[in-house]
């Protein structure tokens, strides 16, 4: 038991580190190619060791706590945000056998845990004793609490369609086709709403108001430097991974290969590609989508952000839940 826990702990921490390195590198390269430049090229071939070098730099930097900051909360915030990101990783099936905790309320658990992020951001913004940080934290509060609803409702629609709260069950229901193909319009709408709302929950462009570089310098993490800043950044990327993994599992079949119908030649060909590759491919596709948003869209204003949620996304997802329920009851999906 202890050994299992230890192995899991070590592998999760390793996964964290690797994901952080890979995603930061990926973001920089994606950004670079959209901006007609090459990005990091010096450290290692094609600059692959650049993020490693940056990590070394961040670790060795001086740890600055501003005067008048609430020391305890200031130190707690980056820790909290990392722990929350780790916790949300537990019920995700990476492959048909790779799952840390096969909970029967996995979807609910992830939704519940990920909404805790706002507390750490508020804590960090408030404890910094910086006016920019406070404004950023307040914006973040309004934003995450609002968009939580749409994320939740689009998850509900998918839970209705698949009839389970457990991630592994949901994957198994997509054996004949992914939900994006067989779920009709409700699955499509839920997918779009989920991607939009979860981008907002991640505080990424076009919803990066809590950071809003050109307005609030760096928003809630203005005062953080060195490793504490790195933890905020790391957790942002881990959260991005989790959101993409949830989207891939619910809508694109998770580790399930591309199947159409039952037990035919095409499905067997597809089965030759290992499940982990399928999972990673889908996740990175969605991560790429989210990065694509960031490097092409301007930022919304706070009132437009809330209008989008309360006047458009929320009514749409409410109706969508009804439609999903109707389809499930009548059995219209394939």
């Amino acid at each position: 038991m202890i050994i299992t826990a230890l192995i899991i702990a070590i592998s999760v921490i390793t996964l964290f580190a690797v994901l952080g390195l890979v995603l930061v590198y990926m973001e920089r390269k994606v950004a670079a190619f959209m901006q007609i430049r090459l990005g990091p090229m010096r450290v290692g071939p094609w600059g692959i060791a650049q993020t490693l070098a940056d990590t070394v730099k961040l670790i060795s930097k001086e740890d600055i706590i501003p005067n008048g900051a609430d020391k305890f909360l200031f130190n707690l915030a980056p820790l909290m945000v990392t722990v929350i990101a780790t916790l949300a990783l537990a019920p995700l099936p990476f492959s048909d056998k790779w799952i840390i905790w096969d909970s029967n309320v996995g979807v609910f658990y992830v939704a519940a845990i990920s909404s805790l992020t706002v507390i750490s951001i508020l804590t960090g913004g408030w404890a910094s004793n910086n006016k920019y940080s406070l404004i950023g934290a307040m914006r973040s509060g309004a934003q995450i609490v609002s968009y939580e609803l749409s994320v939740g409702l689009s998850l509900v629609a998918m839970v209705l369609l698949s009839g389970s709260l457990s991630f592994s069950d949901i994957v198994m229901t997509q054996q004949d086709a992914w939900w994006i193909f067989k779920g009709h319009l409700p699955a499509w709408i839920a997918f779009m709403v989920f991607i939009i709302a979860s981008t907002a929950e991640l505080n990424r462009n076009p919803f990066d108001l809590p950071e809003a570089e050109s307005e609030l310098t760096a928003g809630f993490h203005t005062e953080y430097s060195g490793m504490k800043f790195a933890l905020f950044m790391l957790s942002e990327y881990i959260n991005m991974f989790i959101v993409s993994a949830v989207a891939a599992t619910l809508f694109l079949g998770g580790w399930m290969p591309l199947h159409f119908g039952q037990d035919n030649f095409f499905n067997h060909i597809m089965d030759y590609i290992p499940p982990l590759v399928w999972f990673a491919g889908k996740v990175f596709f969605i991560i790429f989508l989210i990065m694509w948003f960031r490097w092409t869209f301007p930022r919304l204003r706070i009132d437009q952000l809330l209008t989008l949620e309360w006047k458009y996304l929320l009514p749409i997802s409410l109706i969508n839940v009804l439609a999903a329920a109707w389809i499930t009851v009548t059995g219209w999906h394939f």
Binding site: Q35, I36, R37, P206, W295, T296, F297, R299
Partner: peptide, 16 residues
């Protein structure tokens, strides 16, 4: 202008 509104890519295109 793009950068001020949160879109970073125009900055590089303009400079190109």
């Amino acid at each position: 202008m793009g950068m001020d509104l949160g879109a970073l890519t125009p900055f590089f295109w303009g400079f190109r």
